[in-house]
Structures are given as C-alpha cells and as structure tokens.
Design a protein around this nucleic acid. Structure first.
Lengths: 252, 252
DNA sequence: ATAACTAAGAGTGTATGCAATCACGATGCC
DNA sequence: GGCATCGTGATTGCATACACTCTTAGTTAT
C-alpha cells in the first residue's frame, strides 16, 4: 500500500471534527435552514449532548464550529443560541454571496458536462415537486441547489464559502423573511441552468445576480412586520406605553 | 441598569471562545502569517496546551477553530498540522480574495473619514519602516493593511471573511512564495489609499484588483523551484527515475 | 404591593482520566 | 541487505468531575 488517501492538504469536506461533532453540526445546520430551529432558539450543551448521545464535550465542540460559521451566537457563560443576524449583517451577507456565486457561474458557464447538467435539472425537478410538500424541504432544496453548483466548480475553498454564506442566508430568511417567500426561485434556477449549459457567461452572471438580488429582496424588504423577535427597534416608539405593563411573556 | 451590552446578534470580534482558546488562535494565526509556523508543522494538543498554560481541552478547541478557518489540517487520530494549500486551492483563495476586497473598496471609496485615512497612511508608514526590519513583520503588516481596510467598512461579515482569506493567502505565500516577494506591495497600498481618499471607485477597484493579482503572481508563479514540499505533481514526470532511490529525507 | 436582596438551580469553563488509535523503531524472516 | 511483523510510546477521542458564573424564584424590608 502506497498511502494515497484522498488529498493531503485539502479541506475537502471540512468538519475535521472526529465525526460525532460533525454529525451534530450537520444536523443543526439542516435544522436551521429548514427553520426547525429559529433565531434565538437556545442550544444548551447538555441538551444537545443528550439528544445526540454524546457528552457535553462533543456538543460544545460542535457549537464552537457553528459559532465560527456564524450560525450560532456564543457568549461567555451564556447558553448558545441560534444567531439572529441584524439587518446590516443580512445585507452584508447577501452582497458577499452575490460575488462568490458570481465566481461559481464564471467557473461553470460553458464547462458543465452533460452529466452535471442532468444532475442540476434533476435537482430543480425535486424543487418543483417539493413546492407541494413542506416549506422546510423547499427552502432546503433551494439552498442545496446553490451548494450543488458550487461543488461542481471543483474548487474546495469556494465551495466552502458558498456553503457558509448560503446557510447564513437561510438564517437571514428565517429572521426576516415572510413565509412562502421562495416561490418563484425554482424557475430562476431553471433558466440559470440554461444559460450555464449554453455557455453564455454574461447572461448567466446576469441571471445569477438578478436571482440573488430577488432572493435578498424577498428576504429583507418585509422585515418590519413579519417577525416579532428582537423587536427592540420596532418597539422603540412605543416604549413609554409598554413601560406600564412590566410582564414579558417570553417564550420558553 | 438596563442591560444594553454590546450587540445581541453580531459576531463582532468572532472567536466566541472563552478567551484562552481565542488567545491560542490569535497566536497561531500570527505565527503562521509571520511564517514562524510553516506548512506541515505539527501542532500537538499537549504541546500547545503546555506552551500556553492551559489544558489539552482548550488547545483542542482552538485547533478546531483554526481547522474551520482552513489554517490547520485536522485528520482523525492524527496530529494537527499547519495546512499546506495545494496550488489549486491557492489560486482559488486569491480569486475569492479579489472579489471580497472588491466589495471592501466599493464600500470605502469616497467614504473614508480623515481620521481613517490618517490611520491608513500611518500603517503604510509602519510598513515602510518594517522593510528594513524582519521579513516576518513586513508580511504581517501587509496582511494587516487589508484587514484594516476591511474593518473600516463596518461590515462585520465581510470583515470576517476578508480576515480569513487574508490569513489563508499568507499561508499560501508561506507555501509557494519566494522570500522577499512582498517588496513593492507597500507602494501599491499607498496609491490605493490615494484613490480611495479621492473617491474614484473605478480606479480604486482597478488598483486593488491589480495589486492582488500581483501579490498572487509573486506568490504563485515561482512555485516549482522555490519550495520542495508537496512535490508530488512536480515530481510526477520524473517518477520512474526516482523509483530507484527509495529514501525520503523527510524533515523531523 | 413593590423593590431590593438572597440563595438555590442551571449552565458553562476547564482540567483530568481512560480507552482507542497511530507512529515508529525493534525484531525476525526471506 | 531488504522487507514484513510486532510491540511500545506517543497522541488523540471522548467522558466525567469540579469550580465558577449567571439566572431566577423566593424572601424580606419598605
């Protein structure tokens, strides 16, 4: 045996964590993107460990990773919570996403093999099918479409970053977005594939940018009325009124 | 007291780790960018813990973070080592960096306050001064210039990513770059500040892109002869010849 | 009744211990 | 002499234990 393993210095499928911590990370990421976990939800180390059948050590390690990815907020001596991106951060994240996925498109346009195109169309079909199913699956599949594209570039670092910002965008959607805001995205995915297959870089770039702008708009423009968490700023005008009733029905 | 803390959902200065793990992370990052730690160098948990006066638990946590950032390679049951980016990953990283720092420039051009400009010029002066000092300091300051720019955008996520790719680029330089390859970068920093101060977005973007392309070229074009690590691909053509001598003088 | 104070419970921060795995030199075989 | 095998030390994977901090409910004083 000549020792060839996989790749010496590449962080191919990141999560260098043993495996168990990686499992927890993946589970939580998925729960977040499917909005089963929502911003502000608590993630106590004990509970996580017990739920996944591991010790607090592992759960803690996993939380550390998720914290580094910006999906959970870690504050000293405080229970970890699912991150609540600010409006500013959200806009920031989408801007970055647009640039990164621009790189993806540039790398892919005209270079997709038939098999890859088929794989993409297959995924879009799954997205179509999911529109009648649970919204959670819809959102997850939409996110995974972008991840899939990134993976096809074969560029590990780019893939990793697209992955990360995509999940963060899912979190943003969860924070600010209205329900069913990912309606028409499926068609946009479809025409994007067309452009990529045809090799029209300019058009593909334009489509991707437009698509992401629209996703961002759908996610961000409806912020004020859609959610009632972190309402510090929304409530500010009413502060005096509220001051009378001192009870706060905070969710368990 | 009304509890206003700092910012609820922002990962301001990341490293959510208690403090000690964050210390280790910062120390190792710095050591890497200063090329005191070089690709492939081993980072055993015990040794780290002892060196920093903490237990293996903390060292391990820190390594986890660095692994997530792609600065160290974490493989199960293996000693952590400083990452050795492949040529492909290196190119990849620089591409991403160019896009991200493009965002920085776009956000900054014409919007810099006098104080900020002064701060930047001050930094460039420090870079100038360091050219006569140790190369380690030069490289670190050059990296920190870009980080400083990113911070001035006030965009936390963008700052975080620029930070990460910048450090990764430092690692790339360490892997492929020739000594003294950051010679003229200082001037490029200086003219970039001019363009930013003047508010010429187009010119600033062009300068930044050109600057980074040149940094990449200096770092990557000299790969074949400068270093003899990870020479799998370089040696491929000579494989038959090499087959005779089976000794491999691997460094301790 | 309200507000400040206090004490118990909950949860994190960190160190340590043990089992499992790996690296590497020693040993034996061809 | 070269090559495979084995055993020991080195190192990681993981769980547990304890100290410290924060939260919160109960309590007392005003």
């Amino acid at each position: 045996m000549v020792r060839e393993d996989k790749a010496p210095g590449s962080l191919g499928s990141r999560d260098g964590l043993g495996d168990k911590a990686g499992m927890i990370c993946r589970a939580i990421r998925r729960a977040i993107v499917e909005q089963a976990l929502r911003p502000g939800d608590r993630l106590p180390e004990d509970a996580l460990g017990e739920r996944f059948g591991v010790s607090r050590t592992i759960a803690r390690h996993a939380l550390g990773q998720l914290g580094a990815e910006g999906l959970v907020d870690l504050r000293r001596n405080r229970i970890a919570v699912v991150a609540t991106p600010s409006m500013e951060e959200a806009r920031d994240t989408f801007d970055i996403r647009i640039e990164l996925e621009g790189l993806v498109v540039k790398a892919l346009a005209g270079r997709l093999e038939k098999k890859q195109i088929a794989r993409l169309r297959e995924h879009v079909e799954a997205e179509q099918a999911a529109r009648q199913g649970s919204e959670a699956t819809s959102i997850r599949l939409a996110t995974e479409f972008h991840v899939l594209l990134a993976e096809m570039t074969g560029k590990p670092i780019l893939t990793r970053y697209v992955n990360e910002v995509s999940y963060r965008c899912g979190l943003t959607l969860s924070t600010f977005g209205r329900p069913h805001s990912s309606e028409c995205a499926v068609n946009e995915h479809s025409v994007l594939i067309d452009a990529l297959a045809e090799g029209d870089v300019q058009e593909a770039m334009r489509l991707m940018r437009e698509h992401l702008e629209q996703v961002a708009d759908r996610a961000l423009l409806v912020a004020p009325d859609a959610r009632n968490r972190e309402l510090m700023d929304i409530l500010a005008p009413y502060a005096e009124e509220v001051a009378s009733r001192s009870k706060r029905p905070r969710k368990a």
